[in-house]
Simulated scan of single mutants.
Amino acid sequence: MSVHSPYAELLARMPIERHEIVILGSTTRYWVYGPVDAALTIVIAHGYRGEHHGLEPVIAQLPSIRWIGPDMPGFGESTPLTEVPHSIDGFAKWLTAFVDALGLTGTAVTLGHSFGTIISSKAVADGLKTPALILVNPISTSGLEGPSKTATKLTVAFYRLAGLLPDRVGEFLLKRWIVVQFMSSVLAKTKDRELRRWIHYQHHTYFNNFASRDSVVEAFEASVASDVSTYSDGITVPTLLVAAELDDITPVQAHRDLVESMTDARLELLMGVGHLIHYEVPGLAAAAIHSFLVEQGLFGDLPPEATTVQSNIESGAEPSAP
């Protein structure tokens, strides 16, 4: 049974187009949101086992921007990479080639979420030209050093077991309802029962949309092999970190240390939320992104329907969805 999205009405006001392109052997499906003639384009790299739907609550808050949300290779509707491995380096090469193929090199802002923050950071450090970098729920240090070390070690062991078992058995384990539900329940911090119900529905609907056991395990190994700090020395563009006080994967101090080590970075810390900023407080994330873009001279005023989002950022109050 479907659960109505609290952000559906905002999203329904935006034009959305589906396209596909072959990049490094992956038939990459991607979605374009917003006006064709928008003054600013943002290209998204989503989180691990996620897909383009995940960032839609944030996208819906800023309809004057042109957003491009691909399903990364091996996830959602995109096929796996064949010319490079599903490593951070492979995904970064894919992201750079994707942006270049769309003719957006040097003009589109790059936004990464969770696992996508590592990929986008690696791509920018390796030469992807972008006017700015936005990292939502950044993996600022190794997950093995995060607040939930025991849970992380158990997760690593689980994925490695899934990778060692016969393919069908490993995939069976990875797609079990209890596995997805446990992850969703741990990460969700909101006390709103209806919002939690929708978050769980999102995870159960999209979290298992991966191409194969091998590609998803390979990508998991990549996700724990490095973090944003691994590539921060090579990032010189203005960078925004939108982080969460209660993130189970990365402690707040790691974000602060990362910002201090970078050439031009700032941290927007959202209180009372964890690793699901994009689901629980997308309005606050959008407001932080908007403020950053305005400061960089990349974006003008908020559209009328989103002005309440901006007014709530300092108070930390998430505006009600229509």
Rank of each mutant, 00 (worst) to 15 (best):
V43M: 03
T307A: 15
G316Y: 07
K189G: 04
P238I: 02
R176A: 08
G69T: 06
E194F: 11
V3I: 07
A60R: 02
Q310W: 09
F299V: 08
L111V: 14
L269S: 10
A38I: 15
Y201L: 04
A188Q: 02
A321M: 06
S232A: 14
P251L: 07
L128K: 06
D214L: 07
I134K: 03
K153F: 13
L154M: 14
N209E: 12
A108D: 01
K149N: 11
P57H: 06
Y33V: 00
A97N: 02
E17L: 14
A162W: 01
A243F: 02
K93E: 04
V109T: 07
N137S: 14
S148M: 10
R196C: 05
P319M: 07
H290K: 15
L133W: 10
R13C: 14
Q61M: 13
D126T: 12
W94F: 04
V216P: 00
L241C: 09
T110W: 01
L241I: 13
S311I: 00
L267W: 02
L276M: 04
G274A: 12
R66I: 04
S311K: 15
A38N: 07
G112I: 05
G146S: 06
L284S: 00
S291L: 13
H19P: 05
I65E: 06
G106Q: 10
D192N: 13
Y7A: 06
A157Y: 12
D264K: 11
N208E: 13
L240C: 10
G316N: 03
V186E: 06
F91G: 03
K189D: 05
S261N: 13
T155V: 06
E56R: 15
Q202N: 09
H113Y: 09
G74T: 07
V109K: 00
E194R: 13
A287C: 08
L111Y: 07
G74Q: 03
A39D: 14
A211K: 05
H204R: 09
V252A: 07
G143R: 08
E218N: 02
F91Q: 01
A125Q: 05
T152Q: 13
S2E: 12
Y7T: 14
L133A: 02
L293W: 03
F158N: 02
A157M: 13
K93A: 10
S148W: 02
A211T: 05
V136I: 15
L269W: 04
E56Q: 15
A222E: 07
D71F: 07
T41W: 10
H255E: 14
R176F: 06
T150D: 15
V36I: 12
A123D: 12
I16H: 15
Y279I: 09
L133G: 00
S114D: 09
N209H: 06
S148G: 04
A151K: 13
G54C: 10
E56G: 02
T250R: 00
L10P: 01
